[in-house]
């Protein structure tokens, strides 16, 4: 497993997604609507998750362990993402009333978004296939 990518992707997702989520909640508060805040935080957070994943995966080297690393990073980042703890992360709260169920729904959406973003971009070729001038 690429520990460097795991740490970078996990922390990158946690920090940027938290920022987007916080901005969305603050903007949504003025609407005085629970549904509006939930939809807005989902619409702002998911693109950030997609973008951050694409940027970091594009810089990573391709290897058979890359997929495992990305899945692990998705799980670790979701576990560290504060809003998710109470089931207040994404749109799950609007789909199910129970916070535990909302946590699971948001987890599926989060991991799915990370995987879709990772699949949509090509990682750099493996170091073994690099030319000497490229490796340098």
């Amino acid at each position: 497993m690429d520990i460097g990518l795991l740490v970078k992707l996990s922390l990158g997702l946690v920090v940027t997604a938290l920022g987007a989520w916080l901005i969305a909640v603050l903007l949504g508060l003025s609407a005085n609507s629970v549904e509006a805040v939930i939809v807005l935080r989902t619409l702002l957070t998911l693109p950030v998750v997609l973008l951050m994943t694409r940027v970091l995966v594009r810089r990573a080297y391709d290897s058979p362990r890359l997929l495992r690393t990305i899945v692990a990073a998705a799980l670790v980042s979701y576990a560290l993402w504060l809003p998710a703890w109470g089931g207040h992360g994404l749109i799950g709260q609007l789909l199910v009333d129970h916070s535990g169920a909302a946590y699971v729904v948001d987890l599926i959406i989060w991991v799915g978004a990370v995987l879709v973003a990772a699949r949509s971009v090509e990682a750099r070729p493996s170091r073994r296939h690099l030319q000497p001038y490229q490796a340098a």
């Binding site: 909640v25 005085n32 935080r41 109470g86 207040h88």
Partner: peptide, 17 residues
């Protein structure tokens, strides 16, 4: 009330918000 619903009534994330 909206914060209670979308963030939770207490905890670190409520404090942050």
């Amino acid at each position: 009330q909206v914060k209670d619903m979308v963030v939770g009534e207490s905890g670190p994330i409520r404090w942050v918000v």
